[in-house]
């Protein structure tokens, strides 16, 4: 048996254990309901009940991408500072298997944000947003989760190079929310922004998710889903390549154990 598959599942279990032992790592999820309250209050007060799906989807997507930046992005950095990365690299398991396992667990947990926001709508405002196209929603959510995980993996590999990770994390979240169309559909952005955002899987994903909540038929579903999956796959490939390069670099420079 190769070490990849057991390593993936063991890393995922280790990450879930970390969540249980340190609930502070779930802080991003704790903020999602508050954002949902703010946004839904605005739409309800403005008499725009039609925007309720936007108001609930935005904080859920923000929670997921926020977890990718804050938690997934730190995985290698943290393992490096605690000496775990050094030990991982001496084992037969590929680093990408360990990394993917942990980030998959983080992403799965981050999807709890959707349930939180929907509950805020239902219990706090009596607003129940129906999923009009369940298959579209489910498939898009799956592809989105893969993209969020790829984003986390890419950031994890990139953050290793820098030492001031917190500043990067704090600066990155809002540009990602913007380019990903989490709060505002990218079609509403100035032309230059929209063109740039179309290179980011999340802009396609948020449009599709919003469409899946509306009664109107979803136009060009499969090509749009392919765009989400393709861009996510590209990001995953880039993340794997950067992680591989990073390992080569720290082995060459003798800085595996530095943080």
């Amino acid at each position: 048996m190769t070490a990849s598959s057991p390593a993936f599942w063991a890393a995922a279990r280790a990450q879930l254990t970390e969540f249980r032992r340190d609930p502070g790592t779930l802080l991003t999820l704790a903020t999602a309901p508050f954002f949902a309250v703010i946004l839904l209050s605005v739409t309800e007060h403005g008499g725009r009940a039609d925007l309720a799906p936007y108001a609930l989807l935005a904080p859920a997507v923000m929670a997921s991408i926020g977890m990718a930046v804050m938690e997934a992005g730190e995985t290698i950095f943290r393992d490096r500072s605690t000496g775990v990365l050094e030990a991982v690299l001496t084992t037969p398991a590929p680093l990408t298997a360990v990394l993917t396992g942990r980030i998959a667990a983080i992403t799965a947990v981050s999807l709890v944000g959707i349930a939180e926001c929907w509950l805020v709508g239902a219990l706090g405002f009596g607003v129940v947003v129906a999923v009009e196209h369940p298959l579209v929603f489910a498939l898009t959510l799956l592809a989105t989760a893969a993209g969020v995980a790829a984003t986390g993996m890419l950031l994890a590999a990139v953050f290793v190079v820098g030492r001031n990770v917190r500043s990067f994390q704090n600066s990155l979240t809002f540009p990602l929310y913007l380019l990903g169309g989490a709060m505002v559909p990218v079609a509403f952005l100035p032309a230059g922004f929209e063109a740039l955002s179309r290179l980011f899987f999340l802009s396609w994903a948020t449009d599709l998710l919003r469409d899946s909540l509306a009664p109107a038929p979803v136009a060009h579903f499969w090509p749009r889903l392919a765009a989400v999956a393709g861009l996510a796959a590209g990001m995953f490939a880039a993340a794997s390549w950067i992680a591989h390069r990073m390992v080569r670099r720290v082995r060459r420079t003798g800085t595996v154990g530095f943080a």
Binding site: M1, A3, P6, W9, A10, A14, E18, T82, T91, P92
Partner: peptide, 25 residues
């Protein structure tokens, strides 16, 4: 003291490392 997951138990740590050597659950 480095190189272990501090919040995980001793058994959880060892099971994690065992998986990285290809051992099933």
């Amino acid at each position: 003291e480095r190189g272990l997951y501090a919040r995980m138990t001793a058994a959880q740590n060892l099971r994690f490392w065992a998986a990285l050597y290809g051992l099933g659950r």
